[in-house]
Design a protein around this nucleic acid. Structure first.
Lengths: 229, 229
DNA sequence: ACCTGAACACCGTTCAAGT
DNA sequence: ACCTGAACACCGTTCAAGT
């Protein structure tokens, strides 16, 4: 039913096919139905084309995922480098990364291992290394930290409490309610803190506050670590 | 050839089949050949059994992955709660999580979203919440932070520079060399920091130091955030 | 209770053609 | 240059039997 709609909604005037178009539909499909729904055959169907047609644009399925990651990274909006304090500028970078990834939690996991394979990712890595260097981190530590910051942000997006694959609001509420019920049903003598924290473990009261706290911990931690050197 | 070996190496005296045995082989298979190699049919072959036999023990493939996550989490060794400073005890928890996940980087990503579904995971969550509470974090913040710590650790394991699927040492070196070459070939005017940091971006000089720095940042960040409340 | 066997729908991918 | 069509090996999973 949904797939019939999708088949219909893309008339695909011959010649529309391109890397960008395929990647865009792959991201949209993953957002709607999860990463497993992204198959070569489904993508071909969406573009009104034979599965083999996609092989003109991508060597194999893995390259499509590379393209998806690159597409996400390309949406990270980097502001110009200034003479502002490094920690403020680094915070802006982290916020930009989150802003690009949060709308696409099911594909965010593709990003970290592919970050240095695209120009956009290299630009962000370059900026991050520059800012960490200004903060006093030696090059090798800065390299480790840059990867760590990125994967930390991606991790926050993936485990955001109450998030659920498929943007269906009812399913989301059901999943939260179910998790909540299973947590408050635990023996409070054995898991007092878990039971008390059940609402916060099951769903995020404020996603913005959740992400702000995560960034605060990272930046504060970096400040502490750099001054200890 | 490898799969023929695997077929041969498990005589499977009838009655050997069990959730634990299937999960153990699933983890071992993922470690050897990556998560995609873990299929119901491959697992059945390893246990000298028909694919359908596994459905006695798992409702579907997703439940096998749940079992794999639970198996990893069960290997996290939790020491008894004491009156030591909370940050020291929290560090010990984080180190225990890393010790369990590091040997299994290809399946580590299964853990965060399934953490609260097993008794072992709940015990660790309970401990973490207790320690964060001692540190002065309110319950709801502690819940967010506990998830964030976990996903941060998993992220570190997944993106550890120079890590590569399949424990083959030659392949690993080739991958590192290739990444290294592509980075130092970049225009140094555009990416001065990336080019300089190329060795550290391509591979970890000391994985232990890499993980220690990550934990330091998290703990230091937490200390800073809690004292600011 | 535990396992098999045949079948179905779907998958990525190769090869050889078509225009 | 760009797309099709048939085929192959492999998947998860259902249903119906076997012992």
């Amino acid at each position: 039913m949904m797939s019939a709609q999708a088949r219909r909604s893309r008339p695909s005037a011959r010649g529309t096919l391109s890397r960008e178009a395929i990647v865009a539909e792959a991201i949209a499909l993953a957002d709607r139905e999860g990463l497993d729904a992204v198959t070569i055959r489904r993508l071909a169907q969406i573009h009104n084309v034979t599965p083999m047609a996609l092989y003109r644009y991508f060597k194999d399925k893995d390259e499509i995922f590379d393209g998806v990651a690159e597409g996400l990274i390309a949406q990270i909006a980097l502001t110009p480098l200034t003479e502002d304090p490094w920690q403020d500028q680094l915070r802006a970078v982290l916020e930009a990364v989150l802003a690009a990834l949060r709308p696409h939690p099911t594909v965010a996991g593709l990003v970290p291992t592919r970050f240095l394979d695209s120009a956009a990712g290299l630009a962000i890595a370059e900026r991050t290394l520059e800012l960490l260097g200004r903060g006093g981190l030696p090059q090798d530590k800065a390299a480790e930290v840059s990867g760590y910051l990125l994967s930390g942000l991606v991790g926050m997006v993936i485990v955001e409490p109450g998030r659920h694959h498929g943007s269906d609001a009812d399913e989301r509420e059901d999943a939260i309610r179910e998790r909540m019920a299973s947590l408050i049903a635990l023996p409070p003598r054995k898991y007092p803190n878990v039971v008390q924290a059940a609402p916060a473990l099951a769903a995020c009261a404020s996603p913005d506050a959740y992400y702000k706290l995560g960034i605060d911990i990272l930046i504060t931690g970096l400040l502490g670590v750099t001054t200890h050197l």
